[in-house]
């Protein structure tokens, strides 16, 4: 239901963060996340950063498949 975009935080100021998705930059709200820092990766939905991203999908899915076996 919700297009999410993984993007890198390049700046944080006054509750807003500038994020960069492979060269496309936009200011988004950072109010839902504590302690965002430049270099963090976040999931952005409709102009709001909703979660920090902790790893890539490769290692995430590897871990899950490991758990199954």
């Amino acid at each position: 239901m919700c297009v999410g975009l993984a993007a890198k935080v390049v700046g944080v100021k006054n509750g807003m963060a500038v994020v960069d998705a492979s060269g496309a930059k936009r200011e988004v709200s950072a109010e839902l996340l504590d302690e965002l820092e430049p270099g963090d990766y976040v999931m952005v939905h409709a102009g709001v950063a909703i979660a920090k991203i902790t790893q890539d999908d490769e290692s995430e899915t590897d871990d899950l498949l490991e758990m199954l076996s």
């Binding site: 839902l32 995430e60 899915t61």
Partner: peptide, 19 residues
């Protein structure tokens, strides 16, 4: 099973829910 742990924390986003 949470198959999306790189984005979904067990507690979700408390600030979003509070809001």
């Amino acid at each position: 099973v949470n198959c999306y742990p790189r984005v979904v924390r067990p507690e979700g986003n408390p600030a979003g829910r509070e809001l």
